[in-house]
């Protein structure tokens, strides 16, 4: 009767289809594959890092201070003789944790208020819009410094500060995406089906803007890691001797002039790889979560 669609078997389980699709995306775009590989390494380091590292990241050994990279100490040792490799691996959990929690928080705050602003318009839109404008009016890193300084020097406050400075990005993207869909046919159809406005917002519009929000989350993950490390670098947030990439770079910076480059170099490279990985992952992720790309 009607024109036949794609011959794909409808019965094929969704999980298999998703895996196949992911494999196709990675095959088409090897850079995403590389980024995904780095992500797996980082995730492993965050989950089991503290149990597999060769040395206690906090144990100092003044006899072995400032050793250059060797078979025993792969990344060398710092001024207190702590093993840099162990410290870099152990720090992954803290740095990723800060990034994940702050991105989750900003998604909940910025994403939801942005969707509401775009869908309802009117006063909701004005309040959310002006809030975002206010935050954007400050140099963001300085604002983050101010928030941490005012709220207190703790990891929780770094998470909050990172979430606040990312708020405008989320609110604006979500607002724009929700706004173009507020009068779409499927939204009106949802109204006819007896959905309440809140259910339309959360059940119909939000899932449709998830692909773009996923990209946004992946990109801000990198930025959140950088921000957390930056705050620690200038002495806010995480305090020594806790292993953290930003602090390690800060501590090592003083030794670069005297030739002990490895103290700052390895945490710095890891930081760079992590940010790089999340930025690249953003693109690949969008292709995987978007059903439109799945034929």
């Amino acid at each position: 009767m009607s024109v036949a669609a794609t011959p794909a078997p409808a019965q094929a389980s969704a999980a298999v289809a998703t895996l196949k699709h992911a494999r196709y995306i990675i095959g088409e775009n090897p850079v995403t594959g590389v980024a995904f590989g780095i992500f797996v390494l980082l995730a492993l380091a965050a989950l089991i890092g503290p149990f597999i590292v060769p040395f206690d990241p906090l144990a100092s050994d003044t006899a072995a201070a400032l050793n250059s990279p060797s078979a025993k100490h792969w990344f060398g040792t710092d001024q207190l003789g702590r093993d840099i490799f162990s410290r870099v691996v152990v720090a992954t959990r803290l740095d990723l944790g800060i990034a994940i929690f702050s991105v989750a928080l900003v998604f909940a705050l910025g994403g939801l208020s942005g969707v509401a602003a775009g869908y309802f318009g009117g006063w909701t839109d004005r309040v959310v819009g002006r809030l975002a404008d206010t935050i954007m009016a400050f140099p963001l890193f300085v604002l983050a410094m101010g928030i941490v300084a005012a709220l207190g020097n703790t990891v929780t406050n770094i998470v909050i500060a990172t979430a606040i400075i990312n708020f405008p990005l989320y609110a604006r993207v979500a607002r724009a995406e929700a706004n173009i869909r507020r009068d779409a046919g499927f939204v009106q159809a949802a109204r006819l089906c007896g959905n309440s406005e809140m259910r339309i917002l959360l059940g119909h519009i939000l899932p449709n803007i998830m692909p773009i929000m996923m990209v946004q989350m992946s990109l801000t993950m990198g930025y959140a890691i950088l921000n957390a490390a930056g705050l620690s670098f200038i002495g806010l947030g995480v305090r020594p001797p806790t292993p953290e990439w930003g602090i390690m770079v800060a501590e090592g910076a003083a030794f670069i002039v005297s030739g002990e480059w490895w103290i700052a170099f390895f945490p710095g490279v890891t930081l760079m790889l992590a940010v790089f990985c999340f930025n690249l992952l953003g693109d690949g992720l969008r292709d995987i979560v978007d059903p439109q790309r799945r034929t």
Binding site: G185, F186, A189, P207, N208, P291
Partner: peptide, 8 residues
């Protein structure tokens, strides 16, 4: 097309 939610 427009009246069906693309994710349903």
């Amino acid at each position: 097309t427009d009246s069906l939610n693309p994710r349903f």
